[in-house]
Simulated scan of single mutants.
Amino acid sequence: MSGFRILSALKPADAAGLAEFHRVAASALAFDGYAPFNEQALFDLQAGLRTAYLVTVPGMAVSPASDIGDEVAESDDVADEVAESDDVASSIVVGAALGGRGEIDLVISPEYRRRGYGRDAVRELAATEPNGLTAWSHGDHPAARALATELRFVAARTLLELRKPLVAAGETPQAGAAETSAGTTAAAGEAGAGASALEGISAFRVGSDDAEWVALNALVFATHPEQGAMTEADLTARQAESWFNADDFLILRDADSRMIGYNWLKVDGAMGEIYVVGVHPDAAGRGLGRALMQAGLHRLVAAGCTTAALYVEADSLGPVHLYRALGFADHTVDVQYRRLPD
């Protein structure tokens, strides 16, 4: 796209540019401890629904403590300052961003932060989108809050990442212990409707359960902007991911074999994620959500996971209460900002 001073738009076929985009994201993840782009944003990029950008400035790479960095930090017009330097050698990549679908995501490489690059990049990205623009701040960084205020963005959503240790400190999980494979009971000590419901849990059947699950998921998450909008094509895309395992996709059916709940798990080494869990509204209040959670946690232990993680909207008071009662605690906070109309 023409007219950018600090952004370089990447074409879908630009393998080298996209590799650099993912390198910046990986560097930020290693430094911050959380990903700068969420999974849905990356799926949208892969599907051609969003555009990837590199944040670039003309000049030589500078170290975090260099005089050039200190001088740039004092300027609101960073790109102009660097461009006028006699030491300019070539363009350097200082960050990465995503635009499109009324949303922007941005990360600046750790070694180039606090120099004004983020402010310049957000201004350019914001100019490409309508007034209803939203932007995620992963980790709820104080600098992002300050920049949001400056650019007339207000907090619109808060997403919590909660985590729970699955084994005591110093213990080693044993694969197969407390196993909860399809059709087996998770915990002998659980009682009530939730315990009996475990007998109705089976593995997701790829190709047979797709349409029924998409319909149930849309009903459960009718007010959720991303999860409730999942289509069969979206489901197929996730089934193609290396982490997908149908046996980790727990489906709960009633006596008439109707799908009334699910707990989709994502196992990634020692980390096990409660990817998405839901219960049919007509079956709410019967302890089925807790039963599905317990079944999922036992299966994660059986898979050798040492930590369970999940994401939940902060204002979903019922689910948040359940997760905390099960031993989950705050890990990170993501805030979505929305730009005020002009």
Rank of each mutant, 00 (worst) to 15 (best):
P64Y: 09
R114S: 12
E111R: 08
P319F: 08
Y337N: 08
G3L: 13
R205C: 12
V57A: 14
L297Q: 13
L29K: 06
L7G: 04
D334G: 02
L166M: 08
F4P: 00
A303E: 08
T231F: 07
F31S: 14
A329V: 14
G95K: 11
D315E: 09
V333R: 13
V94Y: 05
R101A: 11
A15S: 14
A143I: 07
P341T: 08
E20R: 14
H331N: 04
E103G: 04
R299P: 07
A325G: 13
E241T: 11
W213T: 04
S109E: 10
G289Y: 12
V24W: 00
G116Q: 00
G272E: 03
F21D: 07
D248A: 02
V154N: 13
I92K: 05
E74H: 08
A89T: 15
Y262M: 00
D254V: 05
W264E: 05
D256A: 15
A96C: 00
S2Q: 06
N245P: 02
V82N: 05
A144R: 01
S196P: 05
L162W: 02
S8H: 07
D140H: 03
P58G: 00
M60Q: 15
R114V: 02
T134Q: 06
L45I: 07
T307W: 13
E124M: 05
G33W: 02
E232V: 12
L252A: 04
G176L: 03
A308R: 10
A79H: 09
T180E: 08
V267P: 05
L159I: 11
Q227H: 12
S109P: 00
S109G: 11
V94W: 06
Y53W: 14
V55P: 11
K11T: 12
I260A: 01
Q174E: 12
G100H: 07
V122M: 10
